[in-house]
């Protein structure tokens, strides 16, 4: 009986911990520009954190390893940049258009890929992402190697002037926190329960009458959509949509961020994204060596702490409480 009460207590504590953690994270991010952090740097971190959280929804909670997620980040970036610059849409509408484009792409790619499992699923997503890369390389509207440059930030809803750094910063923060809360909700929804059941034991979930593929497809599309949102916001922040965002190394980077922070944890991808962005920022002077260092970290992570930073802390914490 004591053991049962303990399990319930641990779960309640975990839920409280997540609520507290979200509040602390939001407050820290809200005051970041006033404690000496460079807003553009934090915004870059937030865009990648959102991307990694969206990826983690699919990998950590759906058990599906996509190796082509750069296509969702990049597609939304290109569509947002194009509609904001060439069509002259309001930034909110441009972000919406980019996100919708990634959602649509998610339906198509997901529909094809979820029919296969494991390494084959990863290979299909990688293959399609490579096709998308060459498509964007060739299409005139992307300007190939140059990318779409000087994207106007514009006025959000025609009112808020996003050229002001703090206006841009708080817009990104609101979008990030909203998406973060949405992901938490998805994980703890009736849908999330079934998704976890499928990840744990797919044949059993099917034998209970669940069409596993429908649930996996919805998870894939949600992940693609939120990855798209990250790419769309990133295009407005940096006023640029370029090939690096659709390159396969970007798909690898999001895997690294998620594993480093802690796959299947709520905060892991955020931590992982900020660690990687920080490293790239401060080690930029080392040039190509950044890749070697992140590669070494990846190897270390897989060998020594598989649960990732947040996963290891959580495990240590729950072991310590007993």
């Amino acid at each position: 009986m004591a053991a049962i009460a303990e399990v319930a207590a641990v779960r309640a504590a975990r839920r409280n911990g997540i609520v507290t953690g979200t509040v602390v994270m939001t407050v820290l991010l809200a005051i970041a520009p006033f404690i000496g952090l460079y807003p553009v740097f934090v915004m870059k971190g937030l865009c990648f954190a959102l991307f990694a959280c969206a990826f983690n929804l699919l990998l950590g909670f759906g058990g599906l390893l996509s190796f082509g997620h750069s296509m969702f980040l990049g597609t939304a970036g290109y569509i947002t940049a194009f509609t904001a610059k060439e069509v002259g849409l309001d930034p909110a509408l441009a972000i919406l258009a980019g996100t919708a484009a990634s959602a649509a792409l998610g339906v198509i790619v997901g529909g094809l890929a979820i029919r296969r499992q494991g390494i084959y699923f990863a290979m299909i997503t990688l293959a399609i992402a490579q096709m998308m890369y060459f498509f964007y390389l060739q299409m005139p509207f992307t300007h190939g190697e140059d990318g779409i440059q000087a994207v106007p930030r514009g006025r959000l809803f025609g009112v808020i002037d996003l050229t002001h750094p703090l206006a841009m910063y708080y817009t990104v923060l609101v979008i990030f926190v909203a998406a973060f809360v949405l992901i938490y909700r998805v994980i703890h929804s009736p849908f999330g329960q079934v998704l976890k059941a499928i990840r744990e034991n797919e044949p059993r979930a099917i034998s209970l009458g669940y069409d596993a593929d429908r649930y996996k497809l919805l998870a894939f599309v949600l992940s693609a959509t939120l990855s798209g949102l990250a790419g769309a916001v990133k295009a407005i922040v940096f006023q640029l949509a370029a090939l690096t965002d659709v390159h396969w190394t970007m798909s690898g980077e999001v895997v690294l961020m998620t594993l480093l922070g802690g796959m299947g944890t709520i905060f892991g991808p955020v931590v992982g994204a900020f660690v990687i962005v920080t490293l790239e920022n401060y080690l930029a002077s080392l040039g190509e060596w950044v890749t070697v260092i992140t590669g070494a970290i990846f190897v270390l992570c897989v060998l020594a702490f598989r649960r990732g930073i947040v996963g290891e802390i959580a495990a240590w914490w729950s072991a310590h409480r007993r």
């Binding site: 849908f191 329960q193 919805l218």
Partner: peptide, 27 residues
């Protein structure tokens, strides 16, 4: 065939949940 990381209650609830129809309500 159980769902190993879910609790006993959640295991049974997954089955009961199926009878309320499709559980695609992620919101």
């Amino acid at each position: 065939a159980v769902f190993p990381h879910l609790t006993v209650l959640e295991n049974v609830r997954i089955a009961l949940q199926r009878k309320r129809g499709r559980s695609l309500d992620f919101w």
